[in-house]
Amino acid sequence: MAMTTPTLQAPPALATTTEPPAVRRGLIAGALAFIALFLVMPLAVVLAEALRRGVGTYFEAITEPYTLAAVKLTLIAAAVAVPLNLVFGLTAAWAIAKFEFRGKSLLITLIDLPFSVSPVIAGLIYTLMFGAQGWVGPWLIEHDVRIIFALPGIVLATVFVTFPFVARELIPLMQDQGTDEEEAAALLGASGWQIFFRVTLPNVKWALLYGVLLCNARAMGEFGAVAVVSGHIRGVTNTMPLHIEILYNEYKFAASFAVASLLALLAVVTLVAKVLLEWRFGHELAHNRGR
């Protein structure tokens, strides 16, 4: 059917649920300027500074023995801390989401606690425990066990700051999913492990991956807590972020930014993976939370 009436264009002034174009453009411009100033430029400056002295210097800096030692230590710390917190996240989420018990909301709050503790304080509490003047410090020295200024301290501090990541992704999601499917599996004769591996885990796998991703990014990037317990012994207790600090303070900017660029790359990869997960499996992740 041919349309005889001319097509009318809605005048912008008649729009009911949006702002006039000028206001809209102004708001977008303001938001973009803020993003450019506070997010894009810091990221760009890392790359620019890292490559300032050329690619040769860049590769020299990231293949230097102390850098490699720092990378190794960072990987070890993350490789211990992430699985520990993964196991904790799963057990805590199982107990909290699948059972009703008193004190549950207090427990959830306590699990989030490390997020509200300053990283420096996280390092401090372990120093107070295990340091030379700490409670068990003298006993440890007697028995030649080193925690502070050694790998165990670094791992402990990392575990603390990444403590809630996996749990806080899983708990709300598993609470949402309820216990119907697990109960059905139990009625069909599945054992506890079978229920967990065949019913629960497939339902939360993407949220689990999401949590592990964020946990890992934080574990590899942690600075404050690790700085307190590390002692900055080059080649021994220096993680990548600490190595960045030392190089920076020695005015080796290009080298410092070169190492920083590796961590920035990790951050970008984490962000991309996060966005992809949210985009592809958004409905299988726990939503609507601030962190």
Binding site: M3, T5, P6, T7, L8, A10, P11, L14, T16
Partner: peptide
């Protein structure tokens, strides 16, 4: 109601 603007008419 005026919540939608007609294409024609």
């Amino acid at each position: 109601a005026g919540l939608e603007f007609p294409t024609a008419g």
